[in-house]
Amino acid sequence: MPSLSESNLFKPIQVGDVVLKTRLAHAPTTRVRATSDGVSTDSMLEYYSERAKNNGGLIIFEGTSPAKSFGGYQYQPFLETKRQVESQKKIVDAIHRNGSYVSSQLVHLGRTSLPLGKAVYFPFVGPSAIYVDDANKAAAKALGVELRALTKDEIKEIIKGFADGAKRAINEAGFDFVELHGAHMFLIDQFIQSSSNQRTDEYGGSIENRARFVLEVVDACIEAVGANHVAVRFSPYAEIQGGLGKNSEVSPILIWGYIFNQLQNRADKGKQLAYISVVEPRIQGDAEGDENDKIDFSWPRLFWKGVLLRSGAFINENHQEKLEQAINSDDKLIIGAGRYYTSNPDLADRLKRGLSLTPYDRSTFYKAFSNDGYLDFQPYGKEEDHTKDDVEPKPLA
């Protein structure tokens, strides 16, 4: 792979109050390596510390629920209790010591929260009582947990929960930014899309109404920690977990273009978000497909003038030209990488020096509470280290 050292990828960029040394970001990858009660582990500390070295860019910490009521997967990190906050602060401090910066990705799972029964991850809620699919419906009913629509009072509580989570992330754990997870059909996206939102009140129906929830969450977080610490992620073309993507009732350009425009209006009035993150059309969750490859996804720039983070299949030998063209043609662009950061802890250095990349192993991406496929990958020139594969991760607090 040719060196990218002379490209914009290795030029500094102002994001919020900080100046990143590179325009490469570690995209959020929730690898379920926390404890069963949501405390971050020493394995996570090592993973993120290694990827922050000789980098200077942005690391986006994995999907994190700011409250148990927001739902979550087993071994996913939470940011609610003192132990959970303290454990993440140790990771944030290590990333900062190694010269990089970090976002906390806050998520409410809504109807995608696994229906594990009333004792776990309850309530099981969404914008409307529309299940992801029949299998999800059958599993929930078998466990005595039925999906129900949120009340307006509950919506207000969730908005406050995001803001409270933002305060804990910025003021207590020390994150540089919070990234609101509005992608991949988690709760924010569930409100945006008509396949999951058939409400008849002010949160449903028109595009403006379906966008109301995300904009109110953004405004609450701006009020809580300042716009320069707030970001949001979207996936207009994702067709996973019930998302419509290109099959939306109207073009994604109209739906998300309205939201981007509303966020730009806030920027024009002095409330500029740190960045907006978008997922490329060809990426569907953790998979890659070619059928959406011809979609022209340049349109976010028609609406949003601030820093834009684009993630999805930029980092491999076949897409080198696409990466260089993208990064060199937009002076406010950051490129996100997830899968190749898993197997290349020194990814920034490899791209800068034109070194070959280690292939990733998809089979170990979600090997919960395990170091196998998580800590064994090494910097360029070093053999994989499997000595910790069978070592149990330990809580940091």
Rank of each mutant, 00 (worst) to 15 (best):
residue 161 G to E: 04
residue 168 R to Q: 05
residue 140 A to I: 08
residue 174 G to T: 12
residue 144 G to C: 07
residue 148 R to F: 09
residue 181 H to R: 00
residue 146 E to S: 13
residue 175 F to E: 10
residue 157 E to F: 02
residue 167 K to T: 12
residue 166 A to M: 04
residue 181 H to I: 04
residue 181 H to A: 01
residue 146 E to T: 08
residue 176 D to S: 13
residue 142 A to M: 12
residue 168 R to G: 05
residue 176 D to M: 06
residue 143 L to R: 15
residue 155 I to Y: 10
residue 170 I to V: 15
residue 155 I to R: 06
residue 144 G to L: 09
residue 165 G to E: 05
residue 161 G to N: 06
residue 167 K to N: 04
residue 169 A to Q: 08
residue 140 A to S: 11
residue 160 K to F: 08
residue 162 F to R: 06
residue 179 E to Q: 15
residue 166 A to K: 10
residue 152 K to V: 10
residue 169 A to M: 03
residue 182 G to K: 00
residue 162 F to T: 03
residue 147 L to H: 02
residue 168 R to F: 01
residue 161 G to I: 00
residue 143 L to E: 14
residue 155 I to C: 10
residue 166 A to Y: 09
residue 147 L to Q: 01
residue 166 A to P: 05
residue 145 V to I: 12
residue 150 L to W: 00
residue 180 L to Y: 03
residue 159 I to W: 06
residue 145 V to H: 00
residue 167 K to Y: 02
residue 146 E to W: 07
residue 149 A to K: 01
residue 161 G to W: 01
residue 169 A to V: 05
residue 173 A to C: 13
residue 174 G to D: 08
residue 148 R to P: 01
residue 160 K to S: 15
residue 161 G to P: 09
residue 146 E to Q: 11
residue 171 N to P: 10
residue 163 A to L: 06
residue 147 L to C: 05
residue 152 K to E: 15
residue 180 L to K: 04
residue 143 L to A: 14
residue 156 K to L: 11
residue 159 I to C: 02
residue 159 I to S: 03
residue 171 N to H: 14
residue 176 D to H: 13
residue 156 K to A: 14
residue 164 D to L: 11
residue 172 E to A: 09
residue 159 I to T: 10
residue 158 I to L: 09
residue 143 L to Q: 14
residue 142 A to Q: 13
residue 160 K to G: 11
residue 155 I to T: 14
residue 149 A to N: 07
residue 169 A to I: 01
residue 142 A to E: 11
residue 144 G to F: 07
residue 159 I to A: 04
residue 175 F to V: 09
residue 141 K to I: 14
residue 142 A to D: 09
residue 157 E to K: 13
